[in-house]
């Protein structure tokens, strides 16, 4: 294993399709819930502790070797919005392509065969981390961080927000990312013995509702 593999996987330029998604930020901007850096911070904090915590735990569990098919089912059950399930599978498929080329691994091949149209992105992310020789904590960090960095980047484009302010938001959230990752890895370790029901099931209803509305817009900058 190499520590630097974590930087490759966590790099915002890792070509896995994330640039076209706002993580719900576009819907929140349109609804007036994000108008500047303060709103972005609250949005990201909410996302981190709800869907972010769930994604991080799924990724950590996949990295630990928990059955990815069971994890995919758990992700479905924790994602009420059909639009979000579609987005998660699209991103999972795109990440799968990048991961298989970057870190060829039989477990990635097996999951790609099982889900030719894509498994949930956090599950693929955890397995990609495993293929890269990384551990559950690394996978959870990648997932939790991209769960806030994606919306921050999107809001820079949507509101012409000062990029230094957006980066400051991410830096202020860092201690909370640490906490979410710690809990996610604990839950993932429990899931090894107890099954996927041991994983958290937090959700943010406004993210789910916003995603459904957003999917029906005729004009939008981001795919989700």
């Amino acid at each position: 294993m190499t520590r630097a593999a974590l930087l490759v996987l966590a790099d915002g330029r890792f070509p896995a399709g994330g640039h076209a998604h706002s993580g719900g930020a576009e819907a929140a901007v349109k609804a007036g819930r994000i108008t500047g850096a303060a709103g972005l911070e609250e949005f990201c904090r909410g996302r981190l502790h709800t869907s972010g915590a769930v994604s991080a735990a799924l990724a950590a569990a996949a990295a630990l070797g928990v059955d990815p098919v069971a994890l995919d089912g758990a992700a479905d059950a924790r994602t009420p919005s059909a639009a979000l399930r579609v987005a998660a599978r699209k991103l999972g498929r795109q990440l799968m392509r990048a991961a298989r080329t970057t870190w060829p691994h039989p477990e990635l091949d097996a999951l790609a065969r099982q889900f030719p149209k894509g498994a949930h992105q956090p599950v693929v992310l955890g397995l990609a981390a495993r293929a890269a020789g990384l551990g559950p904590e690394d996978a959870a960090y990648c997932s939790a961080y991209e769960g806030v960095s994606g919306p921050a980047t999107a809001v820079v484009r949507l509101l012409s927000l000062d990029p230094f302010d957006a980066t400051g938001v991410l830096a202020r959230l860092a201690p909370e990312v640490d906490l979410v990752v710690r809990d996610a890895v604990d839950a993932a370790r429990r899931a090894v013995d107890l099954g996927v029901d041991a994983l958290p099931a937090g959700s943010a209803p406004l993210l789910e509702i916003g995603a459904e509305a957003h999917a029906a817009w005729p004009v939008r900058l981001f795919a989700s």
Partner: peptide
């Protein structure tokens, strides 16, 4: 294909959605 405000990214730097 939706490009997230970055058409050149989708055809050059991160081509995954187009390949799909």
């Amino acid at each position: 294909v939706e490009t997230g405000a970055c058409p050149h990214t989708a055809i050059r730097d991160d081509i995954s959605a187009n390949l799909e």
